[in-house]
């Protein structure tokens, strides 16, 4: 009996080691790497006396698993559209009290009340963008006007694709003229076959390192998010030979701020959201990250060059044709089955 009690005591002592994130004075933020101007975090801490712990993730799916597991409390997360839809469906998000976020008035109405979160009950827009083709003008002499160029044998072994099911299958679906959210298996199969046909031309399927590869001139054409394109074309740190093409059809995406239900610091989390929505903060943040801000008060403060840049601010009539990802639920396994065929090839 004594032994058992001892074992039990050690078990408890042990488990205490893993609940290190249960400090209610600290705000735990789960975000993508390099997706906030970290100086702003310091300023927020100084202004409010709330300390912030910033934790990064590599992709949406990883974040979803983390939130579903409920193993560690996060107070703020920055997921993309279709993941927010899934999180709402799984009842993992807390409703946001907009009275605590007066700066929400700065957000442009066209980014509110979208299909994945009607009335923005659970999320506040953070950044948005499109998917297009980043190309190196020293290697690609023709204009980039269609997804078909990614299947052009001239560019064999110079094409970079995303190592992600939705993004890469999406490109093939767009090339074939289908919906990004199709649930028709024949169309998905056709898209996967197109990717298999393309595979010999692909230099690599990468994640974030696409940016670095393009800056280093390792690829001629790459599928990238518009915000990453801004980063790659940056005058100081980027490569001046790179250019970005918005295509007639593409994916329009949003990364919003949400508060998971497990948060015990909802008030403080809302304070942080309000801080991020402040015009001057949003301006500095978008300048740092390079992703487009949905904050119209911040846009007014920004240099005109941003507004005139079609990468940063694609024309509204163009993005009207773009499609937002929706959560596929169980059907995601069909996409995955065909994506595995591409990857194992």
């Amino acid at each position: 009996m004594k032994k058992l009690a001892f074992l039990f005591a050690i078990l408890i002592a042990f488990s205490a080691l893993f609940t290190g994130c249960d400090d209610s004075e600290t705000l735990y933020v789960l975000n993508w790497g390099d997706y906030i101007d970290e100086e702003l975090i310091g300023e927020f801490e100084e202004e409010t006396g709330i300390s912030v712990k910033y934790i990064t993730m590599a992709n949406n799916e990883e974040m979803l698993v983390k939130l579903q597991a409920n193993d560690c409390r996060f107070d703020l997360c920055f997921p993309s559209d279709y993941i927010i839809e899934k999180l709402i469906e799984d009842d993992l998000l807390a409703e946001i009290n907009k009275d605590n976020i007066p700066n929400m008035k700065n957000i442009d109405e066209r980014f509110l009340d979208l299909s994945f979160d009607p009335e923005n009950k659970y999320s506040v827009p953070y950044m948005w963008g499109t998917v297009g083709i980043l190309y190196n003008t020293t290697m690609v002499k023709e204009p980039v006007t269609s997804w078909d160029i990614l299947w052009d044998e001239k560019y064999a072994d110079q094409i970079l694709m995303y190592d992600s099911v939705r993004d890469s299958m999406g490109v093939a679906l767009l090339k074939l003229g289908y919906s990004l959210n199709t649930r028709n298996e024949a169309e998905i199969e056709e898209a996967a076959n197109a990717l298999i046909e393309q595979a010999p031309l692909v230099h690599a399927y990468l994640g974030d390192s696409i940016k670095e590869s393009m800056i280093n001139g390792e690829g001629a054409l790459a599928v990238v998010y518009s915000g990453d394109a801004m980063w790659c074309m940056d005058e100081e740190e980027g490569n001046p030979d790179l250019a970005f093409a918005n295509l007639p059809t593409s994916n329009l995406w949003f990364d919003n701020i949400v508060i998971p239900k497990t948060s015990k610091n909802k008030d403080k989390a809302e304070k942080f959201i309000d801080f991020l929505c402040r015009a001057d903060v949003a301006k500095r943040n978008t300048e740092y990250i390079g992703y487009s801000t949905p904050n119209k008060a911040a846009l007014e403060l920004l240099d005109d060059s941003y507004l005139e840049d079609p990468t940063y601010n694609p024309p509204a009539e163009l993005i009207a044709n773009y499609e937002i990802f929706s959560d596929l639920g169980e059907f995601v396994s069909v996409y995955n089955k065909h994506w595995e065929r591409v990857k194992a090839n």
Partner: peptide, 8 residues
């Protein structure tokens, strides 16, 4: 892949 993107 099964655990992350396929959720299987």
């Amino acid at each position: 892949n099964q655990f992350l993107s396929a959720r299987d």
